[in-house]
């Protein structure tokens, strides 16, 4: 796959109250960002089981984003702190085994930060484009480049 043709798939788990609202705002404000972002609305960033993030990568996502409210602003008061712990666990496990842990991104984007939402989506997509496709999805398969 040549680099300019690489169109990443990024799964975004966005909390209902902040990051989804920011995505709504980016929408109402007509701020364009790459179509590679595939949003899934969840109630709270703490709704997202770490296994979901791993599963998204395994299913073929090139990266995942978990979006929550800023610390202290969580609609459920402490959900985002719990989510941060889970993300820390996932990223540490990935990094420890030599996977690319930057393919899991944790971002705090509040409901009024539509422009920040678009900016993060743009920057992250660019970053993942540079990194190239993820080989995580080929785990336990015959595909990918690594297997002779």
């Amino acid at each position: 796959m040549s680099e300019e043709k690489f169109d990443p798939v990024i799964v975004g788990f966005f909390c209902n109250w902040c990051t989804s609202a920011a995505a709504d705002l980016a929408g109402t404000a007509r701020l364009h960002y790459p179509a590679s972002i595939k949003p899934i609305r969840v109630m709270c960033s703490s709704t997202v089981d770490p296994v979901y993030l791993i599963r998204a990568l395994q299913e073929g996502a090139d990266a995942t984003i978990l979006g929550g409210c800023h610390p202290g602003d969580c609609h459920y008061i402490t959900g985002n702190y719990k989510a941060r712990r889970r993300v820390a666990i996932v990223k540490t496990v990935l990094k420890s085994l030599g996977f690319d842990d930057t393919r899991v991104l944790l971002e705090w984007i509040s409901g009024s930060e539509g422009p920040k939402f678009a900016r993060v989506m743009n920057e992250y997509t660019d970053y993942i484009k540079q990194r190239g496709p993820s080989d995580f999805k080929y785990l336990d398969s015959l595909g990918g480049e690594e297997v002779e």
Partner: peptide, 8 residues
């Protein structure tokens, strides 16, 4: 319904 319990 925040789902923190299901997560942990």
């Amino acid at each position: 319904g925040c789902g923190a319990c299901a997560n942990v």
